[in-house]
Computed example of a mutant assay.
Amino acid sequence: MDGAGSGVWNDGSVHVDDQVGQGVSADLAAFLRNADDDRPVKIVSSVCGECGGRVFVVLVDDVEGGAERVCTGCGGRAFIADSAEFWGEADPGEAGCPCGGGEFETAVTFSLAADGPVRWVTVGLRCEQDGLCGIYVDWKIDYGPTDHLLALA
Protein backbone atom coordinates (compact mmCIF):
# COMPACT_ATOMS: atom_id res chain seq x y z
CA MET A 1 0.00 0.00 0.00
CA ASP A 2 1.33 3.43 -0.87
CA GLY A 3 -0.11 5.29 2.10
CA ALA A 4 -2.73 7.20 0.15
CA GLY A 5 -5.44 4.64 0.87
CA SER A 6 -6.79 3.42 4.13
CA GLY A 7 -5.56 0.20 5.63
CA VAL A 8 -2.72 -1.31 7.55
CA TRP A 9 0.90 -1.04 6.54
CA ASN A 10 3.51 -3.68 7.23
CA ASP A 11 6.61 -3.05 5.16
CA GLY A 12 9.09 -3.74 7.95
CA SER A 13 9.36 -0.10 9.07
CA VAL A 14 6.00 0.09 10.80
CA HIS A 15 4.12 -1.76 13.50
CA VAL A 16 1.75 -4.49 12.28
CA ASP A 17 -1.19 -2.67 13.90
CA ASP A 18 -0.49 0.74 12.34
CA GLN A 19 -3.31 2.34 10.38
CA VAL A 20 -2.92 5.13 7.83
CA GLY A 21 -6.09 6.94 6.86
CA GLN A 22 -7.20 7.88 3.40
CA GLY A 23 -5.69 11.08 2.05
CA VAL A 24 -2.39 11.02 3.96
CA SER A 25 0.48 11.38 1.48
CA ALA A 26 3.03 8.57 1.49
CA ASP A 27 5.82 11.05 2.33
CA LEU A 28 4.07 12.44 5.39
CA ALA A 29 2.88 9.03 6.60
CA ALA A 30 6.39 7.56 6.38
CA PHE A 31 7.90 10.60 8.10
CA LEU A 32 5.41 10.45 10.95
CA ARG A 33 5.83 6.72 11.45
CA ASN A 34 9.61 6.92 11.48
CA ALA A 35 9.47 9.72 14.06
CA ASP A 36 7.28 7.80 16.49
CA ASP A 37 8.19 5.16 19.05
CA ASP A 38 7.41 1.48 18.72
CA ARG A 39 3.73 1.74 19.73
CA PRO A 40 1.03 1.15 17.12
CA VAL A 41 -0.31 4.36 15.60
CA LYS A 42 -3.27 5.72 13.71
CA ILE A 43 -2.30 8.44 11.23
CA VAL A 44 -5.27 10.57 10.23
CA SER A 45 -5.46 13.25 7.55
CA SER A 46 -6.89 16.63 8.52
CA VAL A 47 -9.88 17.54 6.38
CA CYS A 48 -11.88 20.75 6.64
CA GLY A 49 -15.38 19.97 7.92
CA GLU A 50 -16.81 22.93 6.00
CA CYS A 51 -15.40 22.55 2.47
CA GLY A 52 -13.40 19.31 2.45
CA GLY A 53 -10.12 21.19 1.95
CA ARG A 54 -6.83 19.54 2.89
CA VAL A 55 -4.44 22.52 2.99
CA PHE A 56 -4.12 24.56 6.17
CA VAL A 57 -2.32 27.32 7.99
CA VAL A 58 -1.55 25.80 11.38
CA LEU A 59 -1.19 27.52 14.74
CA VAL A 60 0.81 25.55 17.30
CA ASP A 61 1.60 25.89 20.96
CA ASP A 62 4.69 23.81 21.59
CA VAL A 63 4.87 24.76 25.28
CA GLU A 64 1.47 23.49 26.47
CA GLY A 65 0.93 21.29 23.42
CA GLY A 66 -1.91 21.95 21.04
CA ALA A 67 -2.79 23.04 17.53
CA GLU A 68 -5.50 24.78 15.58
CA ARG A 69 -5.84 24.56 11.81
CA VAL A 70 -7.29 27.15 9.45
CA CYS A 71 -8.43 25.98 6.02
CA THR A 72 -6.83 27.93 3.18
CA GLY A 73 -9.91 27.30 1.02
CA CYS A 74 -12.71 28.63 3.20
CA GLY A 75 -11.13 29.89 6.43
CA GLY A 76 -12.83 27.21 8.53
CA ARG A 77 -11.08 26.67 11.86
CA ALA A 78 -10.76 23.51 13.95
CA PHE A 79 -8.76 22.42 16.95
CA ILE A 80 -6.73 19.22 16.76
CA ALA A 81 -7.45 16.50 19.35
CA ASP A 82 -8.05 18.07 22.79
CA SER A 83 -6.38 21.42 22.00
CA ALA A 84 -9.56 23.43 22.59
CA GLU A 85 -9.51 22.44 26.27
CA PHE A 86 -6.17 24.16 26.83
CA TRP A 87 -6.13 26.86 24.14
CA GLY A 88 -7.01 29.64 26.58
CA GLU A 89 -3.64 29.06 28.27
CA ALA A 90 -1.77 28.73 24.97
CA ASP A 91 0.61 31.14 23.32
CA PRO A 92 0.36 29.85 19.75
CA GLY A 93 2.49 30.78 16.80
CA GLU A 94 1.98 30.14 13.11
CA ALA A 95 3.87 27.11 11.76
CA GLY A 96 6.32 27.91 9.03
CA CYS A 97 8.57 25.90 6.76
CA PRO A 98 12.27 26.81 6.42
CA CYS A 99 11.53 27.60 2.75
CA GLY A 100 9.13 30.35 3.85
CA GLY A 101 5.98 28.38 3.07
CA GLY A 102 3.10 28.53 5.49
CA GLU A 103 0.47 26.25 3.94
CA PHE A 104 0.51 22.56 4.81
CA GLU A 105 -0.99 19.16 4.33
CA THR A 106 -1.72 18.22 7.94
CA ALA A 107 -1.91 14.78 9.51
CA VAL A 108 -2.21 13.68 13.11
CA THR A 109 -0.54 10.62 14.59
CA PHE A 110 -2.31 9.06 17.52
CA SER A 111 0.10 6.75 19.38
CA LEU A 112 -1.81 4.00 21.10
CA ALA A 113 -1.15 2.11 24.32
CA ALA A 114 -1.14 -1.68 24.12
CA ASP A 115 -4.74 -1.80 25.36
CA GLY A 116 -5.94 0.80 22.83
CA PRO A 117 -6.20 4.29 24.38
CA VAL A 118 -4.44 7.27 22.79
CA ARG A 119 -1.25 8.14 24.70
CA TRP A 120 0.41 10.75 22.43
CA VAL A 121 -0.81 13.17 19.78
CA THR A 122 1.69 14.29 17.14
CA VAL A 123 0.94 16.92 14.48
CA GLY A 124 2.89 16.48 11.27
CA LEU A 125 2.94 18.96 8.43
CA ARG A 126 4.05 18.66 4.80
CA CYS A 127 4.82 22.01 3.16
CA GLU A 128 2.80 22.64 0.02
CA GLN A 129 5.65 24.74 -1.41
CA ASP A 130 8.63 22.37 -1.16
CA GLY A 131 7.25 19.10 0.24
CA LEU A 132 9.37 19.18 3.42
CA CYS A 133 7.81 17.20 6.28
CA GLY A 134 8.15 18.05 9.95
CA ILE A 135 6.66 17.52 13.37
CA TYR A 136 5.53 20.83 14.75
CA VAL A 137 4.01 19.82 18.09
CA ASP A 138 3.19 16.77 20.15
CA TRP A 139 1.73 16.17 23.57
CA LYS A 140 0.91 13.39 26.00
CA ILE A 141 -2.60 12.24 26.77
CA ASP A 142 -2.85 11.05 30.36
CA TYR A 143 -6.57 10.50 30.79
CA GLY A 144 -9.28 8.25 29.42
CA PRO A 145 -11.39 7.44 27.61
CA THR A 146 -9.71 8.79 24.48
CA ASP A 147 -11.68 7.38 21.52
CA HIS A 148 -13.23 10.80 20.81
CA LEU A 149 -9.77 12.21 19.96
CA LEU A 150 -9.49 10.04 16.83
CA ALA A 151 -12.20 12.12 15.14
CA LEU A 152 -10.45 15.42 15.90
CA ALA A 153 -7.66 15.54 13.34
Rank of each mutant, 00 (worst) to 15 (best):
R54F: 00
D38I: 05
H15I: 02
F104T: 07
R119E: 15
L32R: 00
G66C: 08
D11K: 06
R126Y: 01
P40G: 05
F56D: 02
G102F: 09
L149E: 03
T146H: 01
W9I: 11
I80P: 07
G66L: 08
T146E: 04
V57G: 10
G7W: 02
C127I: 05
V118M: 11
G88D: 14
G124R: 04
V57P: 00
W9H: 02
N10R: 07
E68S: 08
D36G: 14
A95K: 05
F56H: 09
D61V: 06
V63H: 12
A81Y: 10
D147E: 13
C51M: 08
A84R: 15
V60Q: 12
V24M: 01
F86C: 11
L32F: 00
F86E: 15
Q129W: 11
V16L: 09
G65A: 08
V41D: 02
V60A: 14
A78Y: 08
G144R: 12
S46Y: 00
D91S: 15
G49E: 14
C51K: 03
Q22D: 06
D142T: 09
M1W: 00
I141K: 04
T72D: 12
T109F: 00
F86Y: 15
L149N: 01
D91N: 15
D18K: 00
V137P: 00
G93A: 11
D115K: 10
R54T: 14
E64P: 00
A95N: 02
C97E: 05
L150I: 01
E105T: 15
I135V: 13
C99L: 12
V108M: 06
D142S: 08
E105N: 14
C71Y: 01
D115W: 11
C48S: 03
W120L: 12
P40V: 02
I141P: 02
A114P: 10
G73V: 14
I80H: 09
D61G: 05
G66A: 04
G100M: 12
A78D: 15
E103N: 09
G76M: 04
I80G: 03
W120Y: 10
C74T: 09
G76L: 07
G73E: 15
I80S: 09
E68Y: 05
I43T: 09
A84M: 14
D130T: 01
Y136Q: 11
L132F: 02
A4W: 11
D91H: 15
V60D: 04
T72Q: 13
S83C: 10
V70A: 06
G12F: 01
E89N: 13
D115Y: 12
G49I: 07
V118D: 12
V108I: 14
L132Y: 03
V55N: 04
G5F: 02
D2L: 12
A81C: 09
R39Y: 06
